[in-house]
Structure formats: structure tokens, C-alpha cells
Design a protein around this nucleic acid. Structure first.
Lengths: 338, 338
DNA sequence: ATGAAAGCGCTAACAC
DNA sequence: GTGTTAGCGCTTTCAT
């Protein structure tokens, strides 16, 4: 009982014209080649018969799919669903569909996923997974695939990216802690091979310097995860310098700090204040509620999609790096220094 | 500089055979029709040239896409990414790709998304969005689309589903509270038009009765969201019966209860204990850490994918309802009755 | 066991 | 302006 889809042929027959005429009418770009009268008739009929072009067939011919691949490092990290929303909304308006692929922070999986997507003839790719020197980017280029990075940038600068102003965000956090009287502030950094890890670290050092504070303690986590944050925090606290506040490079790392502080019997924020980055969903529900640098998730996704669509429309579109401004969401994990 | 993909034609030429022979070799089902010697030669060549069939072209011919659509009501709800993982893992092993569509809890969007996916010739659908009498299910059937529900079931029983044993889960929560000395337990229920809302409510009433307790207070939320939970909790507490514990039908509703309790100056768990359902990511991080019924997210996704693959392989496969057993994760939101 | 030929449903050169 | 004709890259009868 599979309903046979109405094809372009059926519409053509009903309208008494040739299939190619129907094709012309229904394609905005060739619509003008057809007489007004016929066009209207065909359009009405197409509507009545519930016709819509088969994307597989037309894709085979045109080598386009109205589809975009989105690579996400970890769909369970609540930051990404929010970015996705922005991507999907903007893509949807333009008639494009996003195909999401999860890479679980695994380079090999990412390559495989991209290859699969490319085989499905995606028209472009949005990468939320990019490391600073990511082979994936070269892979995209070798496929001739329009590409935009989101949330993270690449060192090369050879590809468009929509990111948050990491330095500004970290400066917000440091400033806030400084205003609360903290003078000995440590940093739990993100992975050095990811742009955010590197930029936030640089931003931290710059902000500390700007406030005339002594060179601070820094420990870098090897991944953006709670466990890695815990380890880095332990390392930081082991440095034998007294620290009254920690600026973490991301919310998961901040949660790792919570764990390590608790393990050592240090109360947050009474003894040590902590800030995160991303303001992920439920950050306000943690114990204590996490003070975090809020990034415009949705806008970031939307801008990335917009850039990609422009690049699809015109492959020679200029490379752009859009830097969005963060805010600080102040909550209970930061307090005046004792 | 787009690399032209190697096509079946290139392999055929290199092997000195006809393209159709190559096709036969590479398709497991027709592999036997070709002589061992030729088959091996072709296979080697295909590997060397890095050939892999173009899924768009072969899909056009075979009307299959090795692709499955997954409808998610709210990707920002941390339960679904976990289920997705299970789905993707099992699907991936079988060479299938999941295409995820977000419906934002909106029936109209769901219908549109399904239509788009169907146009892309998905081989089957997994619905995490289903209401008890969901038109989507009929839509799937009219497309002749193998379909499996996950996390939620349908009243009709006409479609396979992988769900958690809601009654058992709620019984776990009630039992736990009973053991803690609670005798006056209320229920913040989920939407009545979703199977879990209805089943958990029924399970709650049954469990209460089984413990010989008085008919309890129940308030149903109109959606699975924090705000709706807050409203329902307010209604529950307004019932003028003293309540020392609340069993919520889901973790977001439980968070809503937190908010309402706080607003009324009632301490959780000191004055009122709360349990959730789903044990979503970060439930252990809330303030207080949420006691919740844990469901086997990943397994649920994997089983749904398995059922769907079976149905794709054999469209007359029997309808099944798989009920998975939950556990209780006991945390800080429940305490002995004062 | 393999080759030839005919499409899947559509679009795009090319005619008229 | 509209019809004709050739494919897009593959699979699948049908011959041989």
C-alpha cells in the first residue's frame, strides 16, 4: 500500500506540457523561461497533486542535496544542542536540512563521518569539532566542500569561523573575581590543541597582567571533561601557592574543580571561588550555581549557518571570522575573598 | 580541484570487466553470481582505487538509502542525546546512518520533518516524540515506513516500541520513600497524552495502594518542562493536605518542584523529599542531588535500532513492545521523614 | 558467469 | 517559450 509519489511526469501530463517545462516552472532560477500562463497552471496542478521534487533524483543530476553536515564533538555536552538550534533554524529557512554527526571527540570517527556525509553529497559542512590544526579542514577542502567552523577556530585562518571572543570572556571573569578581592587566581585551561583552550589561556594571562597581579598558576586539562578538570585542578592546587579563585576554561572543567575542591575539603565559594565558560544548560542548578561566561549559543549557530549558505551560494565568498561578545552570568560559585 | 570520485565505471575498466559485474561483486547479495577469480580481482581493485558506491545514485535505483530518520522532541533535554548514542552505535554497525530531526515538542514541525525525511527516502523511522494517539504513526504507515517508538509507546499497540517499565520505576521511588517513613506522598505527573505521563501516574496510584496508603494528591503537568513542573507542584501543595514527599514523573518536573518548594520556603529534602525520573545527565550535580529512577538510555536506543533494522529487513516482522527495567539512583533529594 | 540495455526521477543542453 | 534528448551513477532484468 505504498502510495506512489506523484512525479514530475504526472504533473506534466495533467497540465498537458512536457516534464521539462514543469521542472522549469518549479525551479525558481528557471521560472522566468516559461510563459506566465503555463507557469501558473503548472503550479496550481503541482499543488493540487501534492507534488514535490524528489531530492534524491534531482540531487543526482545537480550534485546538490540541500543538505548540510554538522559535526559535533559531544552531543551530550549541553552547549551543542543550543548551537544546533541556531544552525537548524537558519538552515531551515533556506530550505536546507542539517545532518548531524556525533564524533565523540574522536578524530578518526570524525574523518569517517565526514566521508560518509560527503558521499551523501552534502552541500557544505559546519564543524564544531575543529582542533587548531585539524586535518578535517583539509579533508573538506579536498572534497571542495564549503566549510565553516563554529565555536572553535583554526590556526590557519584559511576557513571561516564563528567564535566567541575568548579573551573578552575571560577578562570578564577575571575582572569579576578581582572586584571581589581575589588577588591569587589560578586557571584550569582547556586542551592546548583547541583554539578555545589556547585563547582562553592567553586571555587569562593578559587579564592577570592588566590587573598588575603576579604571574599566576595555570594547569591545562587534556580534554574538556569533568574528569580532566578534576585532574588539572588537583595539579593546580598542588602547586603550593595559595589560590583563592579558579577561572576554568569551560563549565565541565569547572565541575571537575568542584569535585577536587570537595575532595580536599575546600568549600566553594567560601574558600575558593570558581568560574566556568559557556553557561551551559543547568549551570544555574549546580551546587553551588556556577558563575559562567555566557556565550550567545543560538546566535553563534545562526551566524555559522548564514556564513555557510553564503559560501554555498558563492564559493568564492571571502573568508570571515566572526567574533561574538560574551557576557558574565554571576551566580553562587564566586564570593568575596575572605 | 574537486577530486572526481572513482565510479563503478573506473573499477570496471581497470579490471577489464563490465560495470554490472563490478556491481554484482560489491553487493553481498549478488556476490555469488560472479566467479571467484573475477570477484577477487575486482574487489582488490575497488579497494586500491578507493571506490565506494555512491549512495545517492544507488538509492535512486533501489529506493533505499541506508538511512534512518530519528525524531526527537527536544534535543536540549539531556535524556535524548544518551538514547541517540545507543541508536547511532547500533545503526552504524549495520552500515546505517541516523538523520536526526528536532521537533521542539511541536506536532506540526514533527509532521513536516517526517515528510522531509521521507522525501529523502529514509528506510525507517524512530520516533521519540510519540504521543499516545499520534497522527505521526499513521503518517509513517501511509509512507509504508518501518517505524519504532522509543521511550514512549502508543495506545494502539500497532507499532513496535522500546520503553521503560514505568510502573516498576515509580514503584521503586514510592517504595524508597515509604521505607524512609513517608506516608503522605504526592505525584507531579506528566502530560496525560503521553504514554509515560499516563503510565507513571497509574503506577503511582497502584504503588500507593499496594502500601495501603490513603488516596494521594496528584497534579498533572501539561508538558515535560521545569516551568510546568513548578506550576503542578504549586497546585499539589495548594491542596491543603500535608505532603512530605513528591514523586515527579520526570527530572525536569522535579526541578520545577525544587523551584516551587524554594519559593514557599520549604527545604528539600528536610521538609519535602523529591524524586525524579530518567536520571538525566547532571542530575547528580543539582542542589540537592536528585534521587531519580534511572533508565538504561543507551540500551533503549540500541534496542530500538535493532527492532527497526529487523523490520527493515523483514517488513512483516512481528510488532514488539520491549519493556526495560529501571533502577533507582538514590541521592540527596530524599531523606527520612522528620 | 558475464555483457547489454533499460531505467530510477529529475535537470540542462540543445533544438525548434 | 517549449519540446527533445541525454545523461547523473548505479542496479537489474534479460540475453548470451
Amino acid at each position: 500500500m505504498h502510495k506512489k509519489r506523484t512525479g514530475i511526469h504526472d504533473v506534466a501530463e495533467a497540465a498537458g506540457v512536457h516534464p521539462s517545462t514543469v521542472s522549469r516552472v518549479l525551479n525558481p532560477r528557471t521560472r522566468g523561461l516559461v510563459s506566465q500562463a503555463v507557469a501558473e497552471r503548472v503550479e496550481a496542478l503541482a499543488g493540487k497533486l501534492g507534488y514535490s521534487a524528489d531530492p534524491v533524483a534531482s540531487g543526482l543530476r545537480t550534485r546538490r542535496s540541500a543538505t548540510v553536515g554538522v559535526l559535533i564533538p559531544d552531543i551530550a555536552n549541553p552547549v551543542f544542542p543550543l548551537i544546533l538550534r541556531g544552525i537548524e533554524a537558519t538552515l531551515g529557512e533556506a530550505g536546507y536540512t542539517a545532518i548531524i554527526a556525533n564524533t565523540d571527540n574522536d578524530t578518526a570517527r570524525a574523518g569517517a563521518a565526514l566521508a560518509r556525509l560527503a558521499a551523501r553529497r552534502i552541500d557544505g559542512a559546519i564543524l564544531a569539532t575543529a582542533t587548531r590544526r585539524d586535518p578535517l579542514i583539509a579533508q573538506c577542502r579536498s572534497f571542495g566542500l564549503p566549510t565553516v567552523l563554529v565555536n572553535r577556530a583554526a590556526d590557519s585562518g584559511k576557513v571561516s569561523a564563528v567564535i566567541v571572543d575568548d579573551r573578552a570572556g575571560i577578562a570578564l571573569a577575571v575582572e569579576h573575581l578581582f572586584a571581589l578581592g581575589h588577588r591569587s587566581i589560578g586557571h584550569v585551561g582547556g586542551p592546548g590543541n583547541i583554539s578555545t583552550g589556547q585563547a582562553r589561556r592567553a586571555g587569562f594571562l593578559a587579564a592577570i597582567k592588566a590587573h598588575g597581579l603576579a604571574p599566576p598558576a595555570v594547569a591545562m586539562a587534556e580534554s574538556y571533561s569533568i574528569a580532566a578538570g578534576e585532574r588539572a585542578c588537583a595539579q593546580l592546587l598542588g602547586m603550593k601557592r595559595h589560590i583563592s579563585a579558579i577561572v576554568a576554561a569551560n563549565d565541565l572543567l569547572a565541575l571537575g574543580c568542584y569535585d577536587e575542591l570537595k575532595r580536599r575539603g575546600l568549600a566553594c565559594p567560601r574558600e575558593v571561588s570558581v568560574t566556568g565558560f559557556n553557561d551551559m544548560a543547568f549551570a544555574d542548578r549546580f551546587d553551588p550555581p556556577l558563575t559562567s561566561v555566557r556565550i550567545p549559543h543560538r546566535l553563534m549557530g545562526a551566524e555559522a549557518a548564514r556564513l555557510l549558505l553564503a559560501q554555498i551560494a558563492n564559493p568564492r565568498a571571502p573568508i570571515q571570522e566572526i567574533k561574538l561578545l560574551p557576557e558574565l552570568a554571576v551566580r553562587g560559585s564566586t564570593a568575596r575573598r575572605k
